[in-house]
Simulated scan of single mutants.
Amino acid sequence: MSKDRTRLERLFLRLEAKFPRFGRAIWVIRQPWAILIRIPLGALLILGGILSFLPVLGIWMLPLGLLLLAVDLPFLRHPLNAVVVQSERRYRRWRRARRKIA
């Protein structure tokens, strides 16, 4: 298993732990036989993220769709992992700075 795939698996495990209600659904979608669900769902989520200016849709759909597609498309894994790691670092830094202020 490649380093990028392992990192992506850890990301999905963290998502399952953080959102226990959706943990089972995330686990099912990650299974190899769910490719027929994962690809169209990922594409629809990306489209919904692009159309986030509409009332029901949101920008949150874009990263979720990319995550689902990265399971099957190896060329997406490395850039997506890099963005997730960078975002987590910035978020931690921002929270530390907020704690110092308060």
Rank of each mutant, 00 (worst) to 15 (best):
R90T: 03
A82N: 12
A102Q: 13
L47W: 10
G58R: 10
R95H: 11
A97H: 10
T6P: 03
E9A: 15
L68F: 14
F53T: 03
F75M: 08
R21V: 04
T6I: 04
I46A: 06
L51T: 08
I37M: 14
D72L: 03
L41F: 08
I101C: 05
L47N: 06
R89L: 08
P20E: 12
F53V: 07
R21K: 15
Y91I: 02
R7T: 13
A97E: 15
I37Y: 11
R30L: 03
V56S: 05
E88Q: 14
M1L: 12
G48F: 10
S2V: 04
S52W: 06
I46R: 05
W60K: 00
P55F: 10
G48W: 13
D72A: 06
P32M: 13
F53A: 07
K3G: 09
L54S: 00
T6N: 07
K3A: 15
W60V: 02
E88F: 09
Q31S: 13
L13G: 00
A70K: 08
M61I: 01
L62M: 13
R92D: 13
N81C: 15
S52R: 11
R92S: 05
S52N: 10
R93I: 01
N81R: 11
V83I: 15
G42W: 10
R38N: 07
R93W: 08
R77Q: 14
S52K: 09
G42D: 07
G23A: 15
R95W: 06
F22S: 05
P32R: 13
F19C: 00
K18W: 11
R7H: 12
L54F: 09
H78I: 02
I29A: 15
L67T: 04
A17N: 09
R30S: 10
L44W: 08
Q31R: 14
P32I: 00
W94V: 05
R30Y: 01
L45I: 03
I59A: 14
P79I: 02
L41N: 07
W60H: 01
L8D: 07
F12N: 05
G42H: 10
